[in-house]
Amino acid sequence: MLSFVAQRVLKGVIVLLAIVVLNFFLIRLAPGDPAIVMAGEAGASDQVFVKQLREKFGLDKPLPEQLFIYVKGVVSLDLGFSFRQQAPVAKLIGERLPATLLLTLTAFAISLTLGILFGTFAARFAGTFLDTAITVFALIFYAMPIFWVALMGILLFSVTMDWLPSFGYETVGANLTGLAHAFDVAKHLIMPAMTLGLFFMATYTRMTRASMLEVKRLDFVKTARAKGLSDAVIQRRHVLRNALLPVVTLAGVHSGTLIGGAVITETVFAWPGIGRLMYDALLQRDYNLLLGVFVICSAMVLTFNLITDLVYRLVDPRIEYAA
C-alpha cells in the first residue's frame, strides 16, 4: 500500500507541475494587464508608474524567464508575492484556506450523507410516492442555481424568520471564545454548507438509487436472501456496499467541482475562503495569487482523488493497490 501511495504522490507532483505550466500560460492568454488594473485603481495614468509596476511584477521579463522563475519558486514551495495585496501568496492563501476547508468538507459530508441516505430510501421504496418525493426534492436543488438557492435561503431564514445570520464566518465584534465561538461559527456555517451540499446531494441520491437498484438484481443478493438474511442486512451489507463504488468515484470527481461551487457560495454569504480570493485575483489579474490558488486547489483535488482510491479498497476489498 505504501508504494502505491508513494507512486500516486509522485504522479500527483508531475500532474501539479503540468497544471502550473498550463495555467501560467492560460491566465496570460486572457486580455488584461495587471499593471493597468493597478494603475487604474490608483487613478493614475502616467507611463512611469505603469512601467514601474510592470518591473515590480516581473512582467517586463520574457515569458519563458517568468515561467522559469515561477516554477523554480513552486518547486521550493514558494508561491511568490502578490503585488496587489503586498503579501506572500502562501500567507494570503493560508489565511483563507481553513474557512474553505470547513465549508467544503461540511458541504461534502452533508451531500454525501444525505445523498446516500435518500438514495437508499428511494431504492428501497422504488416506484412509491416516497421515491418520487425524494427524487423531486433532490432535483429541485440540483436544478436551481446555487446563488439563487443562497439568496432565497437568506430571504427566508435571515430576513423573514431571523433564525440564521445572512453573512460572515462569525459574529463580528462578539469576541466569543471556546464552545460559544464554535457554536457561533456553526450557526454561520449552516446556510452556506447546506446551499453547497444540497446541490451535490442530488447526484449522490440519483447515483445511489440507480446503483442499488442494479445491484439488487444481481445473483448474490438472491443468494443472501435465500440463506435467510433479513432485508435490512441485505440492503446494508450487500447491496449498499456494492452500490457505493460509483458513488465514491463521483465523490472524487466532485472534489474539484465543490471548490468551484464554493466561489459562488463564499461570495453570496461573505464566507472568507479562497474561492472569493481566487475570483478577486482573476478580476485583478493578480497572476501570482491566482496561480497560487490554482496550485493549492489542484493539490486538494489530487489529494481527494488519492483518498478516493484508498476508500475503494475499504469499500471493495477485491480491488488491488498495484495500480
Binding site: V159, P165, S166, T267
Partner: peptide, 22 residues
C-alpha cells in the same frame, strides 16, 4: 469607540446586511 468595516462581496447580501441591522 470602534469602527468595523465589514467585507461582504455580494451586492444583494450587502443590502440584506443593512436590512437585518448588521
Amino acid at each position: 469607540d470602534e469602527i468595523y468595516w465589514q467585507i461582504i462581496p455580494d451586492a444583494a447580501a450587502r443590502s440584506v446586511a443593512y436590512e437585518t441591522g448588521k
